[in-house]
């Protein structure tokens, strides 16, 4: 059976010559549909670079990246954007919300790039707001929310397009323990519903709760 994600000798170099940095030094692995994987490693080990490549925000310098059998490393920027739009949801440590947009508009942003009708956007966002238990914050702005509420908004935005993969980069890094647990419950719940989940984390408890752990060190899988 074909893997959902297949990385083959992926390399990523920043800069050229002696001042250049090798962020990923030829890593290979596969991920099956519905898996929940933790990517662990020290700061600078290449976790974020790996997630950026998996999410189509960055392209590898060398190697092959296939998603559902389709070569992603060869895609042009516009097609890469379409790939992100249809398949990937991002959650990051500091939420990446736009402060001068309401909670509703932040969540609706991916739908607007899909040119969805206003009525449908309204329905989908309302539904997710209810799921995340933040319906009352619909018209609030991110600075008015708690960290936990911000991360729920970020998760709602990440999954509103029903992506096949959720990439979470330190999703609980900016949260207290209790809120972090709650956010992880939401992510686990999404995974149980079939969403492939890849989490970059320093947290051993979160890593150990995943089905598989990929440990990175200096751009290589240990």
């Amino acid at each position: 059976m074909m893997s959902l994600i297949n990385l083959d000798r992926i390399q990523k170099h920043y800069g050229k010559g002696q001042s250049g940095v090798c962020a990923l030094g030829g890593i290979s692995f596969s991920i099956e549909t519905g898996e929940m994987i933790a990517v662990v490693g020290k700061s600078g080990s290449g976790k974020s670079t790996l997630l950026n490549i998996l999410g189509g925000l960055d392209s590898p310098t060398d190697g092959e990246y296939s998603f559902a059998g389709k070569r992603i490393d060869r895609l042009k920027p516009n097609h890469l954007a379409e790939f992100r739009r249809c398949n990937i949801g991002f959650v990051v440590q500091h939420f990446a919300l736009i402060d001068d947009m309401t909670v509703f508009d932040n969540i609706a942003l991916p739908l607007r790039y899909r040119k969805m009708a206003g009525k449908l956007i309204n329905e989908k966002v309302e539904h997710l707001l209810a799921d995340m238990e933040i319906s009352d914050k619909k018209k609030a702005y991110p600075p008015e929310l708690s960290s936990g509420q911000c991360q729920r908004v970020a998760i709602a935005r990440a999954i509103i397009n029903k992506p096949s993969v959720l990439l979470a980069d330190e999703p609980t890094g900016a949260l207290d323990e209790q809120t972090g647990c709650h956010i992880m419950d939401i992510i686990r719940n999404l995974n149980e519903q079939g969403m492939t989940t890849i989490i970059a984390t320093h947290d051993r408890d979160i890593a150990s709760s995943c089905q598989r752990i990929i440990q990175l060190s200096d751009g290589h899988i240990v």
């Binding site: 999410g55 925000l57 516009n78 954007a81 249809c86 990446a96 790039y113 899909r114 935005r157």
Partner: peptide
């Protein structure tokens, strides 16, 4: 920069 990053993560292309 940050705002553009959020838009790109949300499915925008550089053309947008």
């Amino acid at each position: 920069y940050y705002r553009y990053g959020v838009h790109l993560m949300s499915g925008a292309a550089l053309a947008n």
